[in-house]
Computed example of a mutant assay.
Amino acid sequence: MFSKLTKGLLAGSVAASALMVAGTASADGMVALLLPENVNPRWEQQDAAAFLATMAEIAPDVQVEVFNANNDTAMQQRQAEQALTQGAQVLVVIPIDGESSAIIADTAAEEGVPTIAYDRMINSQNTAFWIQADMFATGAAQAQHVVDNTASGDTLVLLRGSPTDPNAGVIADGQMSVLQPLFDSGERVLGYANWTPGWDPAIARRSMDQALTQLNNGVQGVVSSNDGNAGAAIASMEEQGMAGTVPVSGLDCTVQAQQLMLLGLQTQCGWRPLHEMAAAAAHVTVRLLNGADYSDLATEVVQNGVGADVAFVPVDSYSAVGAEGVAYVIENDPSITREMVCQGEAAATEFCQ
């Protein structure tokens, strides 16, 4: 299922403890990894951990500075400026906002520093690379799962992502590629839809509460754009005695999401090999530091929101469903173990026995 690029990038597993490995200052340079927030645990526990581990392996003398902007676009811009002042030679940025983050890439370019857009596109003429899976296909898979587990005339709720995250719009477009024809024909009914600023589960929870109130609990499926939204929807439905009776999609396959899947509360999550995405970012980063050719890594070119051609490093994805999906993720994701998933209520499930 993995691309030729990602198959060749990693030879071993990545431990979460790699977050403690940040490299040491040296003449070989410094790079900065700019995280968007800590609401979603993946950024620090998976993406940053894998990036640091790979950098420690392939370029141990390169200093890596990690910043977290806590969903504050102005703070992320200041962190980028701080990194450049400290001498960063490459910026790896997960933007909070694909539009406003353009100033980061533009400012870096003025100093001759390339910017890699990781996971989320940066809409700048100066974005050097983009590393991501096919988020349109991911959204389509989420919607198709919910459609496959509902009936004609059923009412669906759509809990979309953050309106400033360019991925959220692509995911939503993928979902609607499946759902719009069904809404138009009446095969499914759009009962409620809302965006989730900052991917904040508290906001998603309020949205789901509103949906259940407005629809008098008449909801048969939840197309959730990520696991945080899914968990919020499930918590809302638990109060109404509905959890476990309604298919709920997600994205990222966090440990909590996999536990919910084993309990039959969340039914699907889109999984991407985040360790491979982060490793790809590290390999591109080192090529840029060394002034080496990178055409074998960036195998495609895409256009971003301002029409700039951006070298694209594609990564595949997988739609995990039920216990079989959990087993697949555990087998293929080095940051998640069976022991981590089989905790709490999930420990009593057949999967964990």
Rank of each mutant, 00 (worst) to 15 (best):
residue 36 P to F: 02
residue 37 E to C: 02
residue 38 N to D: 14
residue 38 N to P: 00
residue 39 V to R: 15
residue 40 N to Q: 12
residue 41 P to L: 10
residue 41 P to I: 09
residue 42 R to S: 09
residue 42 R to N: 08
residue 43 W to L: 02
residue 43 W to C: 01
residue 44 E to K: 13
residue 44 E to L: 13
residue 44 E to S: 13
residue 45 Q to D: 08
residue 45 Q to K: 14
residue 45 Q to I: 06
residue 46 Q to R: 14
residue 46 Q to M: 10
residue 47 D to T: 04
residue 47 D to M: 04
residue 48 A to N: 08
residue 48 A to E: 06
residue 48 A to T: 08
residue 49 A to V: 10
residue 49 A to Q: 09
residue 50 A to Q: 09
residue 50 A to R: 05
residue 51 F to H: 09
residue 51 F to E: 04
residue 51 F to I: 06
residue 51 F to L: 15
residue 52 L to W: 01
residue 53 A to Q: 15
residue 54 T to V: 12
residue 54 T to W: 01
residue 54 T to Y: 04
residue 54 T to L: 04
residue 55 M to T: 03
residue 56 A to M: 05
residue 56 A to N: 14
residue 56 A to S: 15
residue 57 E to M: 10
residue 59 A to F: 07
residue 60 P to L: 10
residue 60 P to N: 10
residue 61 D to H: 13
residue 61 D to V: 00
residue 63 Q to P: 00
residue 64 V to Y: 12
residue 64 V to D: 09
residue 64 V to H: 11
residue 65 E to F: 03
residue 66 V to W: 05
residue 67 F to G: 03
residue 67 F to H: 11
residue 67 F to Q: 10
residue 68 N to T: 15
residue 68 N to H: 06
residue 69 A to D: 04
residue 72 D to L: 05
residue 72 D to T: 06
residue 72 D to A: 09
residue 72 D to P: 05
residue 72 D to M: 06
residue 72 D to G: 04
residue 74 A to M: 08
residue 75 M to E: 13
residue 75 M to C: 00
residue 75 M to P: 00
residue 75 M to A: 15
residue 76 Q to W: 03
residue 76 Q to T: 06
residue 76 Q to K: 08
residue 76 Q to P: 09
residue 76 Q to R: 07
residue 77 Q to R: 11
residue 77 Q to M: 13
residue 77 Q to P: 00
residue 78 R to K: 13
residue 78 R to V: 08
residue 79 Q to G: 07
residue 80 A to E: 11
residue 81 E to M: 11
residue 82 Q to L: 13
residue 82 Q to F: 02
residue 83 A to V: 07
residue 84 L to W: 03
residue 84 L to E: 05
residue 85 T to D: 14
residue 85 T to M: 12
residue 85 T to H: 05
residue 86 Q to F: 06
residue 88 A to C: 10
residue 88 A to E: 11
residue 89 Q to L: 13
residue 89 Q to W: 07
residue 89 Q to V: 05
residue 89 Q to F: 08
residue 91 L to V: 03
residue 91 L to T: 03
residue 91 L to I: 07
residue 92 V to E: 02
residue 93 V to C: 01
residue 94 I to Q: 09
residue 95 P to F: 02
residue 95 P to W: 03
residue 96 I to G: 02
residue 96 I to P: 01
residue 97 D to P: 03
residue 97 D to T: 02
residue 99 E to G: 03
residue 100 S to W: 00
residue 100 S to C: 00
residue 100 S to G: 05
residue 101 S to G: 12
residue 101 S to I: 03
residue 101 S to F: 10
residue 101 S to V: 02
residue 103 I to A: 15
residue 103 I to C: 00
